[in-house]
Design a protein around this nucleic acid. Structure first.
Lengths: 193, 193, 193, 193
DNA sequence: AATGAATGAGTATTCATTCAT
DNA sequence: CATGAATGAATACTCATTCAT
């Protein structure tokens, strides 16, 4: 299995940094190889092509993301609490890895439609987790009984994504994690007075 | 003034269709010119370069968007009503122009950081309009008095954007406009039972 | 006759300045037209094409050059004196028109082989004048009786050209005309002690 | 070191022929590559860009030129003899490589001012060699004691250049090398009877 | 005579991928 | 396993010239 060998991760980590520093289009395979300390050709022993590096990168990072999240929310009873933890967790991970934040929020979106569909596929586990929290909240009576799960999930994910992107575009210069309670309350009770 | 001449709009309309059909990167200048019924060189009498076509395209469409919206909400008293109208309006415009929807939600995002900053600049008027509706709602007592305007605006815009993108990614196969009341209620009163 | 109308000369003078200031390749027809105060299309009422402007320019200036020279040397008896006057005259004309010097010594040489052949054709009268002075000098016994006229003419013209070009390349920062006696003596009596 | 690899010279030799046959502007990189038997992209492993091919070409050939010349004149005592050998050598090299003659006398001059400055820089060693011969001749008493070295060098180089260019423009149809003694005598003792 | 909007041919360079060693 | 030299497809933009007004 390729992904257990050290060079696999060397290359993925090199890709994150190369993309964050140079931008999506300027991150040539040769630059990634150089930064990973391998020859250009070696990349192709571990990845099918350049796109495969990017998908693998996203998969690898997102897997940690979701696994981590599942553990965190597992111990909690209330759906509202789970939601807050999810927000905090999401914001924390990206706050802690500035390169990764730039890559996921800005650079990877420059990829073509096809690649973005594959990336969305990787996101599915995360989206399912959101929907699971929502369903549980409805069942427990915490959330509205007529909640449109799909639309609500889109609201939550869209809100998170826009907030993180704005933060990255503003050079990550304020405390993202500190926003979690505000966002959570807003999602829970809406604008209405 | 270039933008009052018919060819200016011919080229922009051709660009929308060419990009929607071929994708951002495959939409060569020569294809756009052919579809617009002009010579390649003529493009450069109206636009500085290829990037300028895209920015102008976005500007042109977004201007209509915001102007239209301002008229629509002008006659309304309640902030909640304005919010709903805004959603309906946004969804309707993109529902009515399938090509434009693909271009704004998917293709234009493949542009580089620099171009995206310019596009964001064009978006500012729209974001200001959202913030204006929110401020008025707070003042009139309709919305929570401690509403974080900036974060709330990010929630609203993020929600709209994610819902439209999901709809486009699903080949626009369901009725987007019909979702407006659901989304509006959700934003107004949140998840909480 | 086109060349008696004012716009003909306006365009030629505009071309000299445009080429001197922008360089041969950056001197677009539209720039020349603008500087001449006429429309692009008007150029083509007076000149067949761009190349024709350049040839006409060279012809026009060179004609003055040779006519002037013929008058100057006409009054002189000695071939040596004629040679010196020719040098002084050549250097003076180019010293007095810095733009023309740049155009003839540097910019016009960037033209293709074909155009350069036509320019050489225009030069023929000048070269004939040199040969005439040489022949007269041989006949009068001033110059060596076995002088190879053709080669000597090449030496004289090559020497003048190289000296002027070096002066232009050095930003015309020394007194070119002052060199004439030195050059004349050198051509007359050679290196040999 | 790139210039020790065979492809470096393959490409330079291909460039000389391609330029001589097609002219400077029509000598596309792809044509040079094809003639050199390499892919277009390979050119860029050995040269920074097209201009770099031309400068390297000139450098490479001129280096041989000067080195060769230095050896030839080293064994000689008299400055006059060195001058004659220099002429013969210069004429012989260009007579022996018709393509190179066309390229250096006609095609390379069509390059822009910037490139020509770089080419002039390469020429400096040759010009220094001429000046060295002149200085030695003055010191030994062979040449005039008040010789203006700089102007004399310009005369010699201008003469050589004009004679070679005329020969190339006349399709190299007479014996260039045979002219060397005539030119040498002319430079040595001038026109004067 | 004069205009100037429109035309459209032409080319250097990059970089993901391969494959002989 | 690893290398890295070699490959070659793909595209925006300029500007001399035309011609309807």
């Amino acid at each position: 299995m390729k992904r257990n060998k050290p060079k696999y991760h060397q290359i993925i980590d090199a890709a994150v940094i190369a993309i964050a520093e140079n931008g999506y289009h300027a991150a040539q395979v040769s630059k990634i190889a150089k930064r990973a300390g391998v020859a250009d050709g070696t990349i192709y022993l571990y990845f099918k092509n350049k796109e495969d590096i990017l998908i693998s990168l996203f998969q690898e990072k997102m897997q940690n993301f979701v696994e981590n999240l599942e553990k965190v929310v597992a111990g909690k009873q209330k759906a509202a609490e789970k939601l807050l933890l999810m927000l905090e967790n999401h914001f924390t991970i990206l706050s802690d890895d500035r390169h990764l934040a730039v890559v996921t929020q800005l650079e990877l979106r420059q990829s073509n439609k096809e690649l973005r569909l594959k990336i969305n596929n990787v996101l599915k586990d995360y989206l399912k987790l959101i929907e699971k929290i929502l369903s549980e909240g409805v069942e427990s009576g915490e959330f509205k009984s007529d909640l449109n799960i799909r639309i609500t999930r889109q609201m939550i994910f869209g809100t998170i994504d826009e907030i993180v992107t704005t933060w990255v575009m503003n050079d990550q210069k304020y405390d993202l994690v500190a926003l979690a309670p505000t966002v959570s309350k807003l999602l829970m009770s809406g604008l209405s007075a």
